[in-house]
């Protein structure tokens, strides 16, 4: 194939180009060429409809504020709760006693970090299942919003509505952001006896901790 060779020569020339409009024009031309690949390769309709909805977050307002709430600590008992999922089934933390539970507090459905974070967990669902872990997403969105969000993204694990009284469970876990009216991005691994064994509140709202940390926390529980 000739393409990789041409691309390599193009790349090698970059450090020798003087800064200025000519270099910027070449950069833009190169980026346009790359975007063409994306468009040519897509199946008809692939970038419209539901896919466009799924990708709305890429143009949405950013959510990058620093952490304000500390979250509960490792070793503390995880407060029990009863919250409805998208089908209005009441889900209690204590329903899962005997299994590890991963609580995923996230700010809002459809927002940039949350969409990507939940996509990642959905793609890795077999890894959670292999560890017998239950995955529960929690935000202040309504059950109907959760239903639409989960459908659009193909999320199959429960999303719970901490909707009324708004953010009550997030407050109990000390991850509530009063000024914003939504929670921190926070993860808790609760062991089969109901004790928090891993806790992480993102230092910035758009930061998602490496998923390997979660798997390590779950694996540590299994080794005990």
């Amino acid at each position: 194939m000739r393409f990789p060779e041409l691309a390599r020569r193009f790349l090698e020339l970059e450090p020798r180009l003087a800064e200025g409009p000519e270099k910027e024009a070449l950069s833009l031309l190169h980026a346009m060429l790359q975007e063409l690949w994306r468009e040519v390769g897509a199946r008809p309709g692939e970038r419209e409809g539901l896919e466009a909805l799924r990708n709305l977050y890429k143009k949405a307002p950013k959510m990058e504020a620093p952490r304000v709430a500390p979250g509960l600590s490792v070793g503390e008992r995880a407060p029990d709760f009863a919250l409805p999922d998208a089908q209005d089934n009441l889900v209690r933390l204590s329903d899962f006693r005997g299994r590890p539970v991963v609580l995923v507090f996230y700010p809002l459905d459809w927002s940039p970090g949350c969409s990507q974070q939940l996509d990642l967990y959905q793609a890795e669902l077999p890894e959670f299942e292999r560890r017998n872990a239950v995955l529960l997403g929690i935000s202040v969105d309504s059950i109907y919003c959760h239903g639409a969000f989960a459908f659009a993204r193909g999320l199959t694990f429960p999303l719970l509505a901490d909707f009324h009284p708004k953010g009550e469970v997030a407050r109990r876990y000390r991850v509530w952001r009063e000024e914003d009216g939504f929670s921190e991005r926070a993860l808790f691994v609760v062991d089969p006896e109901g004790v928090i064994r891993y806790a992480h509140v993102s230092p910035y709202l758009h930061h998602i901790p490496p998923i390997e940390e979660l798997f390590q926390a779950l694996d540590a529980l299994r080794r005990e």
């Binding site: 790349l11 970059e14 450090p15 270099k23 910027e24 070449l26 950069s27 833009l28 190169h30 980026a31 346009m32 790359q34």
Partner: peptide, 9 residues
């Protein structure tokens, strides 16, 4: 810098 160049800035 190289990455910015390749991605249109």
């Amino acid at each position: 810098p190289t990455l910015r160049f390749l991605t249109g800035g």
